[in-house]
Simulated assay, not measured.
Amino acid sequence: MQRTYPDTIKLQEKPRVVELYTKLGEFASWMKRPKDAQEIQKDTRKSLPPTMLPMPF
């Protein structure tokens, strides 16, 4: 026999909500993955051109 609890969360059965939760889960797992070499090179700091640097005095 299965018990039912009044305070439990019920999952949505609507297709759009299920699709939203699925996409959110995929995005969260994508955010957790380690960066590859190309992304690391893209994120490296670049020096400013001398015209954009502040005056030293």
Rank of each mutant, 00 (worst) to 15 (best):
P6E: 15
I9F: 15
Q38A: 08
K35E: 05
K46I: 04
T22Q: 11
W30H: 11
P50W: 14
P56W: 11
E39C: 02
P15H: 06
Q12L: 06
K46V: 00
Q12F: 08
E13V: 04
Q2A: 10
D43M: 02
I9R: 06
L20I: 03
Q41I: 13
A28E: 10
E26M: 05
R45T: 08
A28T: 07
M1G: 06
P50R: 11
L24D: 03
M31H: 07
P15R: 01
V18M: 05
R45S: 10
M52N: 05
T8Y: 09
K32Y: 00
D7L: 10
L53S: 03
I40H: 00
P50A: 15
Y21P: 02
S47Y: 08
L53W: 06
R45H: 04
K46A: 04
K10W: 11
T51E: 12
Y21S: 15
D43P: 00
T44G: 07
W30F: 10
K46T: 07
M52Q: 12
Y5W: 08
T22W: 10
L11E: 08
P49L: 12
T8H: 12
M1P: 01
P6N: 15
K10M: 13
M1V: 05
E13L: 01
A28P: 01
E19P: 01
P6F: 15
T44L: 15
V18H: 04
I40D: 00
T8C: 15
Q12M: 06
L11M: 06
K42W: 05
D7R: 04
